[in-house]
Computed example of a mutant assay.
Amino acid sequence: MTAAPTIPPLDTLPGNVDRAWVRQAIALLEGDGRRSADTHLVNPVFPGLKGISIYLKDESTHPTGSLKHRLARSLFLYGICNGAIREGTPLVEASSGSTAVSEAYFAHLLRLPFIAVMPKSTSRQKVAAIERFGGHCHYVDDPAEIYDAAMRIAAETGGHYLDQFTYAERATDWRGNNNIAESIFAQMQAESHPVPRWVVMSAGTGGTSATIGRYIRYRNLDTRLLVVDVEYSAFFDAYSQGDRSARCERGSRIEGIGRPRVEPSFLPDVIDHMIKLPDAASIAAMHVLSERLFRRVGGSTGANFFGLCFAAAALMKAGEEGSLVSLICDSGDRYAATYYDPDWLAANRIDIDVYRPGIEALLDRGDLGLFETADAAAAAV
Rank of each mutant, 00 (worst) to 15 (best):
D364R: 15
L10H: 11
R124F: 13
D222L: 13
V288M: 09
E321I: 09
P47K: 05
D341E: 12
I52W: 00
V325C: 03
C81D: 13
R86Y: 12
A25P: 06
R217E: 08
E360Q: 14
D341Q: 02
G207H: 02
S290V: 14
A246G: 10
M151E: 06
A37E: 05
H62C: 10
I216K: 00
R214H: 06
E372M: 05
R197N: 03
P44W: 03
T122Y: 05
Y55S: 04
A284T: 06
L363I: 14
C248R: 08
S95A: 15
G213T: 00
A374I: 11
I254R: 00
I54V: 05
V195A: 07
L110M: 11
A128Q: 15
I7V: 15
D333C: 06
A336H: 09
P63W: 09
S121P: 11
Q189A: 05
V381N: 15
S233L: 07
L221R: 04
E255H: 03
T99E: 01
A378W: 12
A312D: 06
R132Q: 14
G213D: 02
P196C: 05
F133N: 09
V45N: 10
D11W: 10
T301G: 07
A116E: 03
G159C: 08
R124Q: 15
V101E: 02
V117T: 03
A171W: 00
A171N: 03
P268W: 02
M274V: 10
T2M: 14
P260S: 09
L308E: 02
L13A: 12
R224M: 15
T61D: 05
P47S: 07
R247E: 09
H193V: 13
M188G: 03
G83W: 15
A107H: 02
A313C: 11
F310D: 01
T208V: 13
L56D: 03
P119D: 13
A155I: 15
R73W: 09
L13F: 09
G332H: 00
L109H: 04
N43W: 09
P9K: 15
W198M: 07
E59G: 04
L267S: 03
M316P: 04
A379C: 14
A155M: 11
M316S: 07
E169R: 03
P8C: 08
L267I: 07
D18R: 07
G256V: 03
L225W: 05
I115T: 10
